[in-house]
């Protein structure tokens, strides 16, 4: 379903794998840098990836992260076959979180992930079905592309 645009890289994320947290984010960042994408866009992509990855790890029961490229946008896709989000509007609000206690003790669950993804991306699509899973697609437009 999300195989529309050319794929840059795809990574599987395991459920509750906190040790690997951030690895995908920094890998995506380095990849984008090597493609000559401006650093502030790389950073935004890295934050979006990190938050989406953490949601997949914590709430989604693991899944697949991919980085795709369209003519004028990079797309970060997080797919899982987890429980889905019952009330998406609520989930998008700052401070709303269903994270269990042990996750909160690790410093997550402030309910800032989705709001931050929205803030740092230019377009956000979330396709979620309770009991089936969630697919998040965050677009970041590449504006000031280098000449030559």
């Amino acid at each position: 379903m999300s195989a529309r645009e050319p794929l840059i890289v795809q990574r599987e994320v395991k459920p509750l794998d906190f040790l690997a947290a951030g690895e995908t984010a920094s890998e995506f960042k380095e990849l984008l840098k090597s493609l000559g994408i401006p650093t502030d866009i790389c950073r935004r992509a890295s934050i979006v990836t990190y938050e989406a990855e953490m949601n997949t790890v914590i709430h989604g029961g693991g899944g697949v992260m991919s980085l795709r490229l369209e003519d004028d946008a990079i797309i970060i896709v997080a797919e899982d076959q987890g429980p889905g989000i019952a009330d998406l509007e609520k989930a998008m609000q700052e401070g709303y979180s269903t994270a269990p206690d042990f996750v909160r003790e690790m410093g997550f669950g402030a309910g800032m992930g989705l709001p931050n993804i929205k803030k740092y991306s230019d377009k956000l699509e979330i396709d979620t079905r309770v009991g089936e899973g969630t697919t998040l697609r965050a677009y970041i437009f590449i504006k000031g592309q280098r000449e030559e």
Binding site: P6, L31, K33, S34, L35, G36, I37, I142, Q145, E148
Partner: peptide
Amino acid sequence: VEQAPLGMDLAKAMEKL
């Protein structure tokens, strides 16, 4: 200090990647 990207433009860099 920027590292040289893989290609001159995005399309070339993608090819290289």
